[in-house]
Computed example of a mutant assay.
Amino acid sequence: MELPKFLMGDNTDCLNDIFVIHTEFPRFIINLIDDEIEWLEDFEGADREELELEVATLIDQASEFYDREMKRYETE
């Protein structure tokens, strides 16, 4: 099965949170309400430094995905 790059996550225990799951390396879940990230990978040394440079881009992409999905829901 091929997963999309981003998925939306929902949980009724967290009514005010907006979760987006990034399914490609580096895999993570971001809460768009506060930009808190839960990494699903283990990083060491140089990997961590490279990742820190990429984080801002990944957050922007996750936010753009969410905005696009919400617009699609509004038009349905």
Rank of each mutant, 00 (worst) to 15 (best):
residue 1 M to H: 06
residue 2 E to P: 07
residue 2 E to S: 14
residue 2 E to H: 13
residue 3 L to D: 03
residue 4 P to Y: 00
residue 5 K to Q: 05
residue 5 K to Y: 03
residue 5 K to C: 10
residue 6 F to L: 06
residue 9 G to R: 03
residue 10 D to A: 15
residue 10 D to T: 13
residue 10 D to M: 11
residue 11 N to S: 13
residue 13 D to E: 08
residue 13 D to T: 08
residue 13 D to Q: 12
residue 13 D to V: 10
residue 14 C to G: 08
residue 15 L to C: 10
residue 15 L to K: 03
residue 15 L to G: 05
residue 16 N to D: 12
residue 17 D to N: 11
residue 18 I to W: 04
residue 18 I to L: 12
residue 21 I to R: 01
residue 21 I to H: 04
residue 22 H to E: 02
residue 22 H to Y: 12
residue 23 T to M: 06
residue 24 E to I: 10
residue 24 E to V: 14
residue 25 F to I: 09
residue 26 P to Y: 05
residue 26 P to F: 06
residue 27 R to D: 01
residue 28 F to W: 01
residue 29 I to E: 01
residue 29 I to T: 04
residue 29 I to C: 05
residue 30 I to F: 00
residue 30 I to N: 00
residue 33 I to Y: 08
residue 35 D to T: 04
residue 36 E to V: 11
residue 36 E to Q: 10
residue 37 I to G: 00
residue 37 I to T: 04
residue 38 E to M: 12
residue 38 E to S: 15
residue 38 E to L: 15
residue 40 L to A: 06
residue 40 L to E: 01
residue 41 E to Y: 09
residue 42 D to A: 06
residue 42 D to L: 15
residue 43 F to T: 05
residue 43 F to L: 14
residue 43 F to V: 09
residue 45 G to Y: 14
residue 46 A to K: 15
residue 47 D to Y: 12
residue 47 D to C: 07
residue 48 R to V: 03
residue 48 R to P: 00
residue 48 R to H: 07
residue 49 E to W: 05
residue 49 E to N: 04
residue 49 E to S: 12
residue 52 E to T: 06
residue 53 L to W: 11
residue 55 V to N: 03
residue 55 V to M: 07
residue 56 A to K: 13
residue 57 T to D: 08
residue 58 L to F: 07
residue 58 L to Q: 05
residue 58 L to D: 02
residue 59 I to D: 06
residue 60 D to A: 03
residue 60 D to S: 09
residue 62 A to E: 00
residue 63 S to C: 11
residue 63 S to I: 11
residue 63 S to E: 15
residue 65 F to R: 00
residue 66 Y to I: 07
residue 66 Y to A: 12
residue 67 D to Y: 11
residue 69 E to L: 07
residue 69 E to D: 02
residue 70 M to G: 01
residue 70 M to C: 08
residue 70 M to V: 15
residue 70 M to W: 05
residue 71 K to G: 01
residue 72 R to M: 07
residue 73 Y to N: 03
residue 74 E to I: 11
residue 74 E to Q: 09
residue 75 T to F: 10
residue 75 T to W: 06
residue 76 E to N: 11
residue 76 E to Q: 06
residue 76 E to V: 09
